Structures are given as structure tokens and as C-alpha cells.
Simulated assay, not measured.
Amino acid sequence: MKVVIKKIPEDKTEFAALHVHEETPQTQLISSYLENEEYNTVIVPCTADGKIYRIPSDSIYQIESIGNVQHVHTKEKIFQTSKKLYELEKMLPVKFVRVNKSVIMHLNKVRVYTPLANGLMKAELGNGESAYISRKYLKGLRDLIREGLK
């Protein structure tokens, strides 16, 4: 497939147009990738063991708020950040979603969703941890979960 990139003035809205013979699952995937800005990686400043780290958002599984400290969970390690949960929620890409009062989860890192009897849902993450999606946030997430936001 040929790719053409055209520079536009700053005051114009950026957009992408796909010219295809037919719409396929692959073209839908490309469209979703662009619309949801999945190419957008944010660096989250964190600390652990007295050192400062720059954690790319693609490495984050979930962010959990305990007291005034946010714990950034990656595959192998847990870091801390001084940023507030609401600040992180605003700066992270669309694939990060608030799932309860104290957790933001990376939807692409979920392996299994399990509905629970009390109206909650449990999300098991690829790093072996889990998060609970409260009823308040589940309503808005149902469509994303069903679609499997890729």
C-alpha cells in the first residue's frame, strides 16, 4: 500500500484518509488505530528505589491510587508517581480508562474479564494482577470491552 504524507498549516485539523478497494478487518484496525491515537505514547515520570524512571505508557498495566501516592504497575515492577490520578487520566491515551475510584487500567493489557454476581466485573491483567470494575464505570466500558479496543 502506498503512503502519502502531506504537511498542513498548524491552524488546520489533522486527518487521515484511507482509499481502499473494500473495507476489511485490516482497514478497520488501521482506522481504529488512528482514531484512538494508539500510536500516542506518553512518558510518565516515576520513582522506585530512590531512582527516577521515565515509564512509557505502553508498559503500564494499571495505575492504582493508595493514599496520596499513585502506584504505576508494569509487567515486572511497581513504581510511584506524584501525579494525581485525575492528571494521569487526562494525559494518558484513550486505551487507559478509569475502572473504579482508585484505578486506571490499560484496556489492551487485560487477558480476561469475569462478571461477578454483585454487578462488578473482574479484569485479569497480563502481569498476573487483577482489577475490579465498579458498576459506576462498567456501564461506560461495556461497549469498549465487547469491541475489545485493539
Rank of each mutant, 00 (worst) to 15 (best):
M1L: 13
L18Y: 01
H19N: 13
E22G: 00
E23S: 03
T24H: 01
T27N: 01
L29K: 06
I30G: 00
I30Q: 02
I30M: 04
S32Q: 08
S32C: 08
L34M: 07
L34K: 05
E35Y: 05
N36V: 09
N36S: 11
N36P: 05
T41W: 08
T41S: 12
V42P: 03
I43R: 12
I43T: 07
V44M: 02
P45M: 04
A48G: 10
D49W: 10
I52E: 14
P56I: 05
S57A: 04
D58F: 07
D58Y: 08
Q62I: 09
Q62G: 07
E64K: 06
S65P: 03
I66E: 14
V72C: 02
T74D: 02
K75W: 09
E76I: 07
S82T: 12
L85Q: 01
Y86F: 07
E89P: 04
K90G: 11
K90T: 10
L92S: 00
V94R: 09
F96C: 01
V97Y: 06
V97T: 10
V103D: 04
M105F: 09
N108F: 10
V112C: 12
Y113G: 03
Y113F: 09
P115I: 11
P115E: 11
L120R: 15
E124H: 14
G128L: 06
S130G: 14
Y132D: 13
Y137R: 13
Y137D: 11
Y137M: 14
L138K: 10
L141W: 02
L144R: 02
L144N: 03
I145R: 05
R146C: 15
E147D: 15
L149Q: 09
K150N: 14
K150F: 10
